[in-house]
Nucleic acid binder design. Sequence first.
DNA 1: ACCCTCGGTCAACGGCCGTAGAATGAACCG
DNA 2: CGGTTCATTCTACGGCCGTTGACCGAGGGT
Lengths: 192, 192
Amino acid sequence: MSEPSARLTRAQQRRRSEDRILAAARRIFAELGYDRTTIRAVASAAGVDAGLVMHYFGSKDLLFARASEAPADELPGGTSDEVAEALLTSLGRRLTEEPTASLAVLRSMLTNADAADRYRAAGEPQLKHLTEAIPTPDADLRASLLSAIVHGVLAERYLLRLTNLADASPEQIVDLLRPCFQSLATPPPTAE
Amino acid sequence: MSEPSARLTRAQQRRRSEDRILAAARRIFAELGYDRTTIRAVASAAGVDAGLVMHYFGSKDLLFARASEAPADELPGGTSDEVAEALLTSLGRRLTEEPTASLAVLRSMLTNADAADRYRAAGEPQLKHLTEAIPTPDADLRASLLSAIVHGVLAERYLLRLTNLADASPEQIVDLLRPCFQSLATPPPTAE
DNA sequence: ACCCTCGGTCAACGGCCGTAGAATGAACCG
DNA sequence: CGGTTCATTCTACGGCCGTTGACCGAGGGT
């Protein structure tokens, strides 16, 4: 009996507004970073008043926290080769479907302590995972280098939009990086 | 008759103040990035008034431009192997002596268009150089990946200070990255 | 029909920032 | 010594921002 178009219950209204605010926040945080993003701009992009954003999310920090929530990729365990391939697959996916929420963190991490913490927290389990799979004493450094490479590529492709990286196909990037990842994940087979 | 300690000519005074302002600006821009750095903070760290900074440098943008001037590394030409090794050497040097001026750019490039342009401009000749030395059709992409790796490592070591990367010795990092760089700089010897 | 609830707006405050311009006093030059 | 230059400081303006609290009006339960 309810009209299919207009009428919304209060809960629906609220949810719709919150979703629109979060979507706008993710987009703008990812585009401008934490500092240059203003609550007023987010509100305006979401079609609401700035006061409403405060009302629902409490503060700019909390809004950023909510907007940058992103499920971390689960890397399956296994040999170092398998983990390297899994990391490549994860990178390939992130090169295919632009991960706006994690881009917000990536964009802001160099100038905002909260975002930096969030970045560390998101990367830590993956780092631990990688470290455990790499059978060398310097496993932790190797894992960190792998992480640095992944994020360096993502940053230059999506944030800096360096044309070479932005135009390349995910497969091409992944294929070029494969030997790179393998050399870091596995001890050199040359000496034995 | 001039005291060895105190008396300074006007030109000396000016030069001393400009140098102190530039040094403070480099440090703070590198630490906080463009946006969070205030002229007042730079002036205070340099022991002068904010008006003086404006008087000498004209604007915050111009101050940033002056503070982030850094001579680019010249990469010698040669085979792809040699260029890869030269890039590694350059990275090793930047891991040994912290390059404050380029850290200011690195810190700010994700949130400031000027810094992003400066970053592109600084990297472009090196990229061209790398591209010319790599004998594959996808040389430009390979060069960009190499650049992304270098800057990813620098950012995580100096800006994010991820402990694994911050504690490692430059030699260790360079050695681990060598096969990585070689695999990107040279076509795979497997297929032939 | 009543009234409480609550989504939403509006106007304002206090703070920090980049920047401009007047004022001061010492260094320089004749 | 007198006047000019110039390094330096002080004060203030206008703007943007995060945040607040009063206010409005339409649900929605009873």
